[in-house]
């Protein structure tokens, strides 16, 4: 190749690279402008990443909490955060994020909040702060309908699928240390592996397993475990103002009946009394 030819090719490559970068900078991936009619007024004291917008991180899908495709996500968490944001006169932008790094990403400032069917735990609060709880959850064991596994005691020697970074993963490692744990980045992969027989069981939050049993063939929830888990919205550690504002809005949503409506819509029953009054103070 002649010197001149090579230079031309390199210049063309550099130009295309710059164009591509420019185009990427202009648009925004993973956008959901779940526009809920908020304006921009009076939000300057809530120091959000983008003024007037609440940037939300969530690992989608986890039905029935978050599901669907951008920009039309829905689910209990999605509708709840939309409701809260509208009380605060903020727009909502949802960013789909893998669960195993979601709290780290929040701590690094990629979102204002995380709502992702996630349990309040001390470990997580080393990096983030949680607001008041909005859901009571249990762990549960999902198996194939004809499985011999009846209880957690049957797990030693079996292979249990979990989602990486969840309390289900921690629970099964704690309570059934002789079981082989297979940790999937995507929740759905764990369920599909169970359907295919590649794992013998899945340990995950009860609403999630119930949904999987409902939508996938041949699965049923064998046992549930009262772990007293509470789901909360997560914030960066120094975002006290935002956290208090969101707690306030959440309390409003609970008090005026909207919460109960949403709960019944997604879970087909009334919310338990404790969740309507539960609060949480981060350490």
């Amino acid at each position: 190749m002649t010197h001149g030819r090579l230079t031309t090719i390199l210049l063309a490559l550099a130009a295309s690279l710059l164009l591509a970068l420019g185009a990427a900078g202009c648009g925004d991936d993973d956008d959901d402008d779940g526009d809920n009619g908020g304006g921009g007024a009076d939000t300057t004291e809530l120091d959000t990443i983008r003024p007037g917008t609440l940037t939300v991180g969530s690992d989608i899908p986890y039905p029935p909490f978050e599901q669907g495709r951008a920009p039309d996500y829905d689910g209990f968490d999605i509708e709840l955060i939309n409701e809260i944001a509208s009380r605060l006169e903020l727009d909502v932008q949802i960013k789909d994020t893998p669960f195993d790094t979601i709290f780290r990403d929040l701590a690094q400032g990629k979102f204002d909040v995380v709502i992702s069917g996630s349990t309040i735990t001390d470990e997580r609060e080393r990096a983030v702060d949680f607001g008041d709880p909005y859901f009571l959850a249990e762990q549960s064991l999902l198996v194939q309908v004809d499985s011999d596994i009846q209880a957690i005691d049957d797990l030693p020697g079996q292979t249990v699928g979990v989602q990486k970074g969840t309390t289900g993963e921690a629970y099964v490692k704690e309570e059934a240390p002789d079981a082989t744990v297979r940790s999937y980045g995507d929740l759905d992969d764990a369920f599909n592996a169970l359907v295919a027989g590649q794992v013998d069981a899945v340990m995950f939050d009860l609403p999630g397993t119930q949904e999987a049993a409902r939508t996938k063939e041949g699965l049923e929830v064998r046992e549930s475990y009262d772990t007293g888990e509470e789901f909360g919205i997560a914030f960066q550690e120094d975002a006290d103002a935002l956290r208090e504002a969101v707690n306030g809005a959440l309390a409003e949503v609970k008090d005026d009946g909207t919460f109960a409506e949403l709960y019944t819509e997604w879970f087909k029953k009334d919310p338990p009394q404790e969740i309507l009054t539960a609060t949480h103070t981060p350490d």
Partner: peptide
Amino acid sequence: GVIALLEVVEAGRTVQAETL
């Protein structure tokens, strides 16, 4: 690792998820 084989990257990610 995407199909949950615990090879070195997955091991790293497991630690990452647990310890942040």
